[in-house]
Design a protein around this nucleic acid. Structure first.
Length: 420
DNA sequence: TCTGGGGTCCTAGGACCC
DNA sequence: TCTGGGGTCCTAGGACCC
């Protein structure tokens, strides 16, 4: 007999982008729609439940979605609106407890164990939140309530669309056992297939499998975690703060030969985005990783860890350029075609710390804090300041080379890079 | 005329140090 | 006189999540 109740909630807006579009454009309500980056082609970023019923999913190529769902309406996303609307929802969640852990733009965990004396039992709190989001924002939100984060998350998935599922402690086993393993957080297509190959389809099947066997099938970490979750052991607390471990940006370029001009132009733009975001947070990072994607989605990465942290745009551009050519030069063909370039910076430290210990020469562009590095950083900061006063495009380059067709709108990138 | 962009975490092998 | 083991850091690739 358990002593704690279902005090963890997982609240998850249903088909968020698509639901917002149906809210903003009443003519779209009840109809299958796909929210995309562009009006034609491209990729489906979100599908309404009416479209999901035909098999349309996020990440799917637009033409394939249209094939699956005749009558599908493509809607260009109103990306500049989504953040504020989701923030309104989070504010409602925050009204019942300060213990809200937002894990993406449209979902959050809540610990309501300290809120029951004010708002009643967790099931009542969940119902209240759903009602308020529906009437005050106009969106459907599903909520799962359970003893652990893992169970609450599964419960909200089961509740969708627009539902509430409460798992009482005494019912946990009965709830979990028949569910497919794919509902477990961390089980994607590959793991699901590996498990299916061994006749493991449900969480109950998983719970009956030895831990050591799981670790053999899936590796130490994944196997161990899955075994624990299937046995309903999830010690994670709801935590309100997490710090970023990396900052990155990438851009699809269509399908183009890797010329020096293209590589430099795209990397300059990406480095500007990444370094600018680092500086805005007073951060810098030591490890620079680039990604180059070739045809058939084959991508390679190259990384370099520098002696000190960087956040200067030009330095980042130069390091990235060197790494990208390292990868391209290893290709068999002379001038291979590429479809995407990306830059990510990790091993982050706070910029304030390095400014204090500015080592003096020898000047070395690879070494931030050297004369060159410091000068570049100072220049970048003045550009940042001008941008802040006069707008993003006032100073420096526009995303020129990003070219026709391939990319996603600027507002989508800005939405994706927001801190939660 | 397939397949966006932002992340996290894990694994495995090699270098290097004691 | 050719031999151990542990720890840490780095790189590359991959699975997964929203």
């Amino acid at each position: 007999m358990s002593t704690t109740g279902p005090t963890i909630l997982h609240a998850d807006l249903d088909a968020f982008y698509a639901s917002v579009e149906q809210l903003l454009q009443p003519a779209l309500r009840g109809r299958p729609i796909a929210v995309g980056g562009s009006d034609r082609g491209g990729v489906v970023l979100a599908a309404s439940y009416e479209a999901k019923a035909h098999g349309v999913q996020g990440g799917m190529a637009g033409w394939k979605a249209a094939q699956l769902c005749p009558g599908l309406t493509f809607v260009r996303g109103s990306f500049h609106r989504y953040q504020a609307i989701a923030d309104d929802v989070m504010a409602i969640l925050g009204d019942v407890t300060p213990l809200v852990q937002r894990i993406s733009i449209d979902e959050a965990f809540l610990d309501v164990s300290g809120s029951t004396h004010l708002f009643g039992p967790p099931a009542a709190i969940a119902a209240l939140l759903r009602e308020r989001v529906r009437t005050e924002v106009g969106l459907p939100i599903s909520v799962g309530a359970a003893r652990t984060k893992h169970l609450a998350k599964i419960a909200s998935q089961v509740a969708k669309p627009d539902g509430l599922v409460v798992v009482e402690p005494d019912d946990e086993r009965d709830f979990l056992d028949p569910l497919p393993v794919g509902l477990i957080w961390g089980v994607g297509p590959v793991t699901k297939q590996r498990l299916a190959d061994r006749g493991i389809h449900t969480i109950g099947d998983l719970a009956r499998t030895e831990r050591s066997a799981m670790e053999r099938y899936l590796g130490h970490a994944t196997g161990g975690t899955l075994h624990s979750l299937a046995h309903n052991e999830d010690p994670r607390r709801v935590s309100t703060s997490t710090r970023a471990r990396s900052v990155g940006a990438q851009s699809a370029v269509g399908r183009r030969p890797a010329t020096p001009e293209l590589v430099r132009e795209v990397l300059s733009h990406l480095a500007e985005r990444v370094a600018g975001r680092l500086r805005a947070k007073d951060h810098a990072g030591r490890t620079v990783t680039v990604r180059v994607r070739f045809l058939a989605m084959r991508s390679v990465t190259r990384a370099l860890t520098l002696p000190g942290p960087v956040s200067a745009t030009l330095t980042l551009t130069e390091v990235a350029e060197r790494l990208v050519w390292q990868a391209i030069d290893e290709e068999e063909s002379e001038r291979p075609e590429i479809t995407l370039l990306g830059i990510s910076v990790s091993k982050l430290t706070s910029q304030a710390a390095i400014q204090l210990e500015l080592p003096l020469p020898p000047p070395d562009p690879w070494r931030p804090g050297s004369e060159t590095g410091a000068a570049r950083w100072v220049l970048d900061r003045s550009v940042d300041a001008a941008r802040e006063r006069f707008g993003r495009s006032a100073v420096g380059y526009l995303p020129a080379a990003m070219g026709r067709g391939a990319g996603v709108p600027e507002e989508f990138r800005e939405l994706a890079e927001k801190d939660l």
